[in-house]
Computed example of a mutant assay.
Amino acid sequence: MVEFFSTLQSYFSVELVRNAFIVSVFISVAASLLGVTLVLKRFSFIGDGLSHTAFGAMAIATVLRLTNSNLFVMPVTILCAVILLRMNNSKKVKGDASLAVISVTSMALGYFLMNVCNVKANVSGDVCSTLFGSTAILTLTPSDVWLCIGSSILVVLVYIFYYHNIFAVTFDEEFAKASGINVNLYNTMIAVISAVVIVLAMNLVGSLLITALVVFPALAAMKVCSSFKKVIITASIFAVLTSSIGMLISIFLSTPVGATIVLVELAVYFIFAIVGMIKK
């Protein structure tokens, strides 16, 4: 045990490891809060679509050799989030069709540009890192860390101050409208928050695994909790616990960060599912 803590201390003496751990905790909390709303509103498809969009935008930013890619990726992803939301409410083109069009096109465009323009020597490695988050989490700059912390805190504050309105919009939009709540405004706000969280989470688990980070905590919490508030709190605890365990396993065993966190979430989810069955 002494040797374990000694090794752990040596790892955390490295700034890159500390930054990665801090970001994983903050992003996991923000993603879990968002996930509860998205799952209950049946908007969880947005996470998958936006992750593919962010990959395409990241590829374009790489081709343009932008110093800070987030300045390009974030606005593009936010715009696509609003478009997906509007198309989901459209009678002509439903959400699943718009998701397929935007996500597949973005992925194809991104991979096409990264290969044709050949801006980096190891294109395959760079694509793998973007898709699965294998190394990006360990190359975070101080500005990236503060951006993740600030954005995550902002998401938490939004849920605290607008809890009742988000609750109403999540469960019954017609009732929310009758109560004088601007439903379109809150849906747009949820879409924008989704885009921000997705872009930030790409550094943690990659664009292909982001959906798990958003959905698993919410689904696990719903297995054991019956109220909205308890689900939010439990989902946050689940997210922090699994991301921390996943990071530690990844550090000690040198496994891919994103894949390790997702597998830990899957394992803990099954535990929650069993507990939920026992309670029933």
Rank of each mutant, 00 (worst) to 15 (best):
M1T: 14
S6E: 10
L8F: 10
S10I: 11
S13N: 15
E15T: 08
E15W: 14
S24P: 10
S32H: 09
L33H: 11
L38C: 12
L40K: 15
F45M: 12
G47E: 02
G49Q: 01
L50V: 01
L64A: 14
S69A: 13
L71R: 07
L71A: 13
F72L: 14
V73M: 02
I78Q: 07
V82K: 01
I83D: 11
I83R: 08
I83C: 12
N89G: 14
S90R: 10
K92N: 11
G95K: 06
L99E: 00
L99P: 02
A100C: 13
V101M: 08
T105D: 04
M107S: 11
M107T: 03
L109G: 01
L109K: 09
V116W: 11
V116P: 04
N122H: 10
V127M: 02
C128D: 09
G133Q: 05
I137L: 13
I137N: 03
T141V: 10
P142E: 15
V145K: 06
Y159L: 01
I160K: 00
N165P: 03
A168K: 13
V169K: 07
T170F: 01
T170D: 02
F171R: 13
D172P: 07
E174Y: 07
E174F: 14
F175M: 13
A176W: 00
G180V: 07
I181M: 07
N182V: 05
N182R: 07
N187F: 08
N187R: 04
I193W: 09
I193Q: 08
S194K: 08
A195H: 03
V197W: 09
L200I: 12
M202L: 14
G206V: 12
L208E: 10
L209C: 07
L209M: 15
V214S: 04
V214C: 07
F216M: 11
F216K: 09
A221V: 14
V224R: 04
S227R: 09
I232H: 13
A239G: 00
S243H: 02
S244P: 03
I245C: 08
I245E: 03
L248R: 04
I249W: 01
I251Y: 06
I251C: 02
G258Q: 03
E265Q: 15
F270G: 01
G276E: 06
M277R: 15
K280P: 10
